[in-house]
Design a protein around this nucleic acid. Structure first.
Lengths: 341, 341
DNA sequence: CTGAAAGCGCTTACAG
DNA sequence: CTGAAAGCGCTTACAG
């Protein structure tokens, strides 16, 4: 049997209540008894049972993290470890633990979230993504359970605290950059229209083109659903257009790197024949040839802020929902150049 | 206030004990009352409080995962998400949750582990790494707390259930492969001697050389500590040897890709001038030029097995420690070729 | 087949 | 400054 507050009390000759109070470092306990009790704890190797504590104080000191479903290989990309590092930092500072969903499908995740919430496993939740149609977010909202999200909520954003890049703005910037290099036929490859950030980025792209009075070509948007038939095939199809794109904004660095690889196979030079930019600034982007021009969205900071505000929200009664914008910046390397023809 | 077992009992006109029993689907409760109680639950939107349950049954249905410290960028590489996918699968099947350490230093992690264990937050633990000198593992052993580890424990291996590749064998194989291509001066770059898998791989390399009666050159082992002064510098230093290596076994694909990049900068052709192999088979390895020859250590499966046996160990009283070996295989691509000179 | 009682290991008004 | 008592929401012998 584990040693309990009772055992400690017996050894220290005080009541369990007193032991509990020195545990909480209650100010009204005399230093003398505190010392006495602490010695007894030490001697017995006492450690509080957090479950029991949680049950009465109605708080677990742990935050739940909802990941996109692990069946999709979304996890292959380094977003997750990086965002987790950020969340960990803040959680640790406040002595919070981290509980993870493991679901492989949205339904499974939903079940787990209900369990976390109703089963009182966590005090608050961080949603690591924002989709257009998310009944998990709806549920949390309905239950008025504390949560923050990474990404802009598609609906009810005004009632939710979330952390996001300014995806519209940054994509407008990167498009302006390509425009500045003389490109006018710019494709967007790997669009997942369920994700709100894709919607925003696409809008940023369009805004940029509009402002430059360059027409936007719908055929130049390649959706991730199409990619499932083979990215290489879709890519070469894209290039067979009578007026093919001369620049590509890829959904992320992985897509960008894959495209660069296919370009080589197809004897198309990057960046001379086609310029390519990615998103996320994964480490490897620096080492491939040509090195990858990309947008650093500061994933770590996204995690830090999401955790920071969740913790704040948990503490303050009058917390008002807010939007936190994490700056993104263009990392210019060698995968883009001036349009040659 | 949340709805409790008492509320349900009141509505269904039964005692709380009975409600608890239908929750556990106790066989001796009549179908009639089961139905009645379930209706009441439904009506009230009842969900069991898992904390309360855990307190009495002394089991949390959650497993703790101890990561290498998040301060090191170890997490940048996709090992973590991938192993987590594997663990998740098994955890989910058995309705176990996942609790994560967040520590940035070994000491912090140790504190968290003690909390997890003593605070009764988890039923068992998976250690995601094995180091030569690990007081966390010692602690778990001393406490006789259930755990499995990914990687070979440096000591007490016979008392511990662990999942590992046969690192000696697979590295012997990959070295044999390089030997077969005519290479005799083979370097090992990025050795972290704290990690047991490095020790094993180095041994595999030596075994292969020994067997081929090729002498092993200590200077050809480049430690990660040296790498901190700049991998590029260490690499060019290595190549300035009067008899430089013609092949490199890199600690992982990241190191391999970085080396390939530096080789290009230094006007050294890969694989013509130097052959390079990595470990892990990260997705991107397929897309870089030259595509990367590597060892697929089957990270996902490592996670699956670690979770599977932890769960088994939690269930069975007479579980005996065992070693599970996950097969690794060489993925031959284009970063190695026959020695030219 | 079901209920009353005790208990899991804590915390926290209440009283002194 | 400290203790006795009640209670957090469950489970589980024990008894009938």
């Amino acid at each position: 049997m584990a040693v309990t507050i009772k055992d400690v009390g017996k050894v220290a000759n005080v009541s369990p209540s007193t032991v509990s109070r020195v545990l909480a470092n209650h100010p009204k306990i005399s230093e003398a008894t505190k010392r006495k009790v602490r010695e007894a704890m030490e001697k017995l190797g006492y450690h509080p049972n957090l479950q029991a504590r949680s049950l009465v104080v109605k708080s677990t000191n742990t935050i739940g993290i909802v990941m996109p479903n692990s069946a999709e290989l979304a996890l292959e990309n380094p977003f997750f470890p990086e965002v987790l590092r950020g969340i960990s930092l803040k959680a640790r500072e406040s002595h919070y633990g981290i509980y993870l969903t493991t679901g492989a499908s949205t339904d499974e995740i939903y079940q787990e979230v209900v369990q976390m919430v109703q089963g009182k496993r966590v005090d608050g939740i961080i949603l690591l993504y924002s989709k257009t149609n998310d009944y998990i977010m709806d549920y949390l909202l309905k239950e008025q359970f504390p949560f923050t999200v990474i990404g802009r909520p598609f609906i009810n954003a005004e009632r939710i605290t979330y952390v996001d890049n300014d995806n519209i703005y940054i994509t407008k910037q990167i498009t302006d950059y390509l425009l500045g290099l003389g490109h006018t036929r710019i494709a967007f490859v790997g669009a997942n229209m369920e994700m709100v950030y894709t919607i925003d980025r696409l809008q940023g792209l369009q805004q940029s083109l509009e402002q430059a009075e360059v027409s936007f070509d719908e055929r130049f948007v390649v959706y991730d659903t199409q990619l499932k038939n083979g990215m290489k095939e879709q890519f070469s199809k894209l290039l067979q257009d009578p007026h093919p794109p001369t620049a590509i904004v890829a959904a992320d660095d992985f897509v960008a790197i894959e495209l660069i690889s296919y370009a080589e196979d197809l004897k198309i030079a990057v960046p001379e024949d086609i310029s390519i930019v990615g998103f996320n600034n994964i480490i490897i982007g620096k080492y491939i040839k040509p090195s990858l021009t990309t947008v650093d969205i500061n994933i770590y900071q996204l995690g830090v802020e999401a955790a920071k505000y969740l913790l704040q929200l948990l503490k303050e009664d009058d917390f008002v929902p807010r939007r936190i914008t994490v700056p993104a910046k263009i990392v210019e390397r060698k995968s883009c150049c001036r349009k040659t023809m």
